[in-house]
Each structure stands twice: as C-alpha cells, then as structure tokens.
Amino acid sequence: MRRYRDELVLVAGLGSAFALTAAYSLLGKWSLWSSVMVLCLTTFYYSYTFFHSDNRGLKLLLFLIQAVVVIFYFALIYRVFGIIDSATGETIRPEWLDAMYFSVVTWTTLGYGDFRPVHDAKVWVMTEALLGYVFMGIFVAKILYMLRGDEQLSQSPGASSGDQGS
C-alpha cells in the first residue's frame, strides 16, 4: 500500500474533487470551492513530499498532471459561467477549445484580451491566476532543485583543487 501512496493520493484527490463538483446542485458554489481546495491540497502534497523522496521524477510528473487537471477544471467552470467575447461584447458559452484557451491564458497570466470573464466568474479568474503563479514557481523550484542535486551527485568528494594532495 505504501508503495502506491502517490498514485492513491492522485486518485483520491481527483475522485473527491469530482464528487464535490457533482454535488453542485446540493451545495452550490461551496462544492466548487471545496473541489478546488482538494485539487490544490493534493498537488501541494506532491510539493511537500518531493523534497523528501528518492523518486522525484514521479513526484514531478504527478505534480504536472495535477496542474493540467486544475487548468481543465477551471475551463469547466468557464464553460458553465460563460465568458465575454471582447470583439462582440456578447456572453458566450465557450466550446472546450475556447474554454481551455481562456484557462491557459489566465493560468499563465498572459491575457490576450480576446475573451474576458463574466462578472460571476471574476473570482475564479483571480483564483486561477494566483494559482498559476504559485504552481509555476513551485515547478521552477523543483526543476532547479533536481538540477542542483544532479550537479552535486556528479561531483566526487575531494574533486576540488584544494582537497587534492601533492
């Protein structure tokens, strides 16, 4: 069981988030916020355990999977609430490609300006942009940590010029 803990955390997190999202008709927006929290906590589990693990490659992969799931999740929210097409000023229910595009543009805080959120989705857009900052910062930190660790492993003890005897 311990061997598959990371995979179980992923499945449990995704399953819980899906169940909470499905409970939208009963719980309203609280179910959406709760599911976002579950996805974030699951992702941050991989961040915390990353630095205490020998299997950092798997932890990084699962972290990236969770990040993509969060982006898809926000795209689903934008499909439900709708977005405003800036060219026409009309509120549209975007197709999946447009919803994913808007979600990625929001996540990366790129903001081309061709779509903008409806009033009810503004808090979701702000949340996604902040999560994008945090996730990308954590991702860069993990990559640098892995590169630094590989560099330290490739250096043998006593390889510096001050440690070598004559």
Rank of each mutant, 00 (worst) to 15 (best):
K59N: 13
V140E: 14
A19G: 02
T108R: 00
L61Q: 03
S35A: 12
L110E: 13
T49C: 08
T109E: 08
W124K: 01
H119V: 13
G111M: 04
M100V: 07
V36L: 09
G28H: 03
A19D: 06
K29E: 13
W30V: 14
V104E: 01
M37D: 11
H119C: 02
G28T: 02
I77H: 01
Y145G: 00
T91S: 08
F135E: 01
R2P: 06
W30A: 06
S34K: 03
F51L: 09
F63R: 02
F81Q: 08
T43C: 12
Y112T: 15
T49Q: 15
F139Y: 04
R2K: 13
L20V: 11
L14V: 05
L153Y: 07
R148E: 12
T43E: 14
W96C: 01
G158E: 06
A159E: 15
R5I: 14
L144T: 13
A141T: 10
L39P: 02
T127A: 15
A67T: 15
G82N: 02
R148I: 14
S53A: 15
K29Y: 12
L64I: 07
W33T: 03
L26A: 15
A129H: 07
S53Y: 05
K142R: 10
S47I: 04
A159S: 15
L10K: 05
A19L: 10
T21A: 07
L153H: 14
I71E: 07
F135I: 09
S47E: 05
A17N: 00
G162L: 07
V69R: 08
R148K: 07
S16L: 11
W124Y: 11
L76M: 13
P117H: 03
P94C: 04
G149A: 15
G111D: 04
V134Q: 04
Q155I: 05
D54V: 08
A121W: 01
Y73R: 00
D114M: 09
T43I: 10
Y45R: 08
S160Q: 10
E95G: 13
D85T: 02
V36Y: 02
H52W: 10
L39W: 01
L131A: 14
S154R: 11
A87Y: 04
L32I: 10
Y112K: 13
A67D: 05
D150S: 09
G89N: 09
K122I: 15
A22C: 03
E95D: 15
T108A: 11
D85F: 00
L32C: 02
Y24C: 01
R3P: 03
E95N: 13
P157G: 09
G158P: 06
A19N: 02
W33M: 05
A23H: 06
L60E: 03
S25D: 04
D54I: 09
S156F: 14
Y46D: 03
F18Y: 10
S53T: 10
Y45S: 06
